[in-house]
C-alpha cells in the first residue's frame, strides 16, 4: 500500500460500526485477565486488517495498540506497588512474564525502577488504603500545591 493510500485511509470518516469495533479492541487490550493476544488477533477480532487497525488505533488513541497495552499494564502495576505489593507480585499481577522486562519497561516509561517507585509512593501514604493524590491526582487536586506565582496568571 502506498503512503498516499494509507494517509487517505486514515482520514476516512469513522462509521459507528468501526467506532464500536475499535472500542471493543481497546477493551481487549485493557483486559489484564485476557491472554496476551498478538495484535494481529485483536485486529482480526475487531474485523479490521492488521495494518489498518494499527493506523486507525494510533489516530484515535495517539499510540500503537502494542504500546497502549503496555501502558495499561504498567498502570496496573503502579497501583499494585502503591498498595504495598512486592515488585514480583505486581509484575505478575499486571500480566508481565518476566521481572526483567517489566523493570525495563517501567523505568523507560516512568524514569525510575519499580522498587524506587514503590518506596517513594509508600512514603507519601498517610492513610492506609487511600491513594496518594501526589501520585494519583483527582480532579484539580494538584491545584492545592501550586506556587503563589501560578495564581498571578489566572
Amino acid at each position: 500500500m502506498s503512503s498516499t493510500d494509507s494517509s487517505k485511509m486514515r482520514r476516512m470518516p469513522f462509521t459507528d460500526t468501526e467506532f464500536a469495533h475499535i472500542c471493543r479492541a481497546r477493551d481487549r487490550l485493557l483486559d489484564l485477565s485476557e491472554p496476551y493476544w498478538p495484535i494481529e488477533r485483536v485486529a482480526r477480532e475487531a474485523g479490521i486488517s492488521h495494518f489498518h487497525f494499527i493506523r486507525r488505533f494510533q489516530a484515535v488513541f495517539g499510540t500503537t495498540p502494542h504500546q497502549y497495552r503496555i501502558d495499561a499494564r504498567l498502570r496496573h502495576a503502579r497501583l499494585r506497588l502503591a498498595s504495598g505489593c512486592s515488585v514480583t507480585e505486581s509484575c505478575l499481577d499486571a500480566g508481565f512474564e518476566s521481572v526483567g522486562t517489566f523493570s525495563y519497561l517501567f523505568r523507560r516509561r516512568l524514569g525510575l525502577t519499580p522498587s524506587e517507585y514503590r518506596r517513594s509512593v509508600r512514603a507519601t501514604v498517610t492513610v492506609p488504603g487511600v491513594l496518594s493524590p501526589v501520585y494519583f491526582p483527582g480532579c484539580l487536586s494538584l491545584m492545592a500545591s501550586l506556587p503563589v506565582s501560578a495564581f498571578s496568571q489566572f
Binding site: C23, R26, D27, L30, R75, L79, L131, Y135, F136, P137, G138, C139, L140, L142
Partner: peptide, 18 residues
Amino acid sequence: LEPNANPAGRTFQEAMFA
C-alpha cells in the same frame, strides 16, 4: 490538561468515550 492517573477518572473517561 490533568493527568488521568486516578483509576476512578480512568474508568469514567473510558466509559464516556465508548
